[in-house]
Design a protein around this nucleic acid. Sequence first.
DNA 1: AACCCCTTCAACCGCATTCAC
DNA 2: GGTGAATGCGGTTGAAGGGGT
Length: 402
Amino acid sequence: MGRAPCCDKANVKRGPWSPEEDAILKHFVEKHGTGGNWIALPHKAGLRRCGKSCRLRWLNYLRPDIKHGGFSEEEDSIICSLYSSIGSRWSIIAAQLPGRTDNDIKNYWNTKLKKKLLGKDIKDDQQTRRLLAKEAAAGMRFNSSNNIVSETMSPSNNTASPSVSLTELGQQHKNSPYNALEASNVPVLLQNPSSSASSESSLSITPTINVRNTDHYEKDFSQMLEYSSLTSILMRALESNKSSNCSTHMNPSQLTPCLINNPHESHDVAALYAQRGSFNIKAETFDQNDTQLAYSIPYWETCHSYQSDNNMWMNEVDNAADTDFSYSLPGNHHMNELLFYSNTNNSMQIKDEPTTSEAYWVPQLAAASASDPKSSAYSYILPTEGNSNTAPQGIFQEGVIY
DNA sequence: AACCCCTTCAACCGCATTCAC
DNA sequence: GGTGAATGCGGTTGAAGGGGT
């Protein structure tokens, strides 16, 4: 047997709420709470409304922490960044903006923000997101230390207090194309071992997420060994927010698991750091002696991604004349898995079909020191192809805060 | 004043998921 | 495990209001 019937739809009032109805609902909820049952609430409160309507009215308008009025520049920025990354998932975006409702943000986006940012030549959602990604990529700048300054995310002071955890995100959307946010993956990587014993990592944009969970990396590392013949990989994401002690501006919700693959049996490199939407990437290759190899890509590239007509995620490099860099997403992969290949002449290109579909979470972390960015970069050495005597060796320092 | 067009945003709708039985 | 109500979400609608002619 199921539950009792919801409500008598023939006898409920519809349309705009009167001030009297608002007062009744507000008074009732503040005094008694929802009781975990919105369907029964209108009857108890003496309202001729559907429970669903009551819930909507309370959540979107009456509850006390609702922020009415115009959106700030910072809120605009967060909305744009998240929209370019995850699309129209308003509830998640709203979770980043305390006091704002998903309905609010959705309306604001559709009526104002989209036009304000992108002009009136918008044909469809896909174009919108692509343009936004370009905007975001254009917002990436280098400071004098050659570190990234993300102007578009710019949550350095973290005024947003997210109310949704990554675990919740993963659970809510485990079947979405973005299911790399699954709880089983994300919190482990982003967990701060030095913090409380909470099993969940808050979706916050704070430096505290940047602590390595070595157990996970060891496991990750061993998996990687099975598939890669890379000689050495260095991953780093440099950012300049030294004032907050090595914080990254990146929002964890935008992190992308990356597939590292080397189908060419050469010393190709796939060194990467990615977030959906726009991202900056620097690829460098080192041998076991930590000597930088000649075919490293010694400069930053600003890339941005977009969804192609056949729903494939593609990327573009802003300065394609310098580097032919690209990634593809095979059809049997999640959309947010990335493949990075390179040949050995300092250009990167898509080669053969991948030989593995394993995905790896990539350290999302930033270097602590602008003067010596390598000092806190994450790196590990992989055995050279054909040299089975070379013991796999991960190199990382326990407890290092990036 | 009347009409039209556009913008805004609260509310609704349909669907997918969760949950109680 | 099956069923159906409850809940949550995103897309859409339509009333209200403002501005222009």
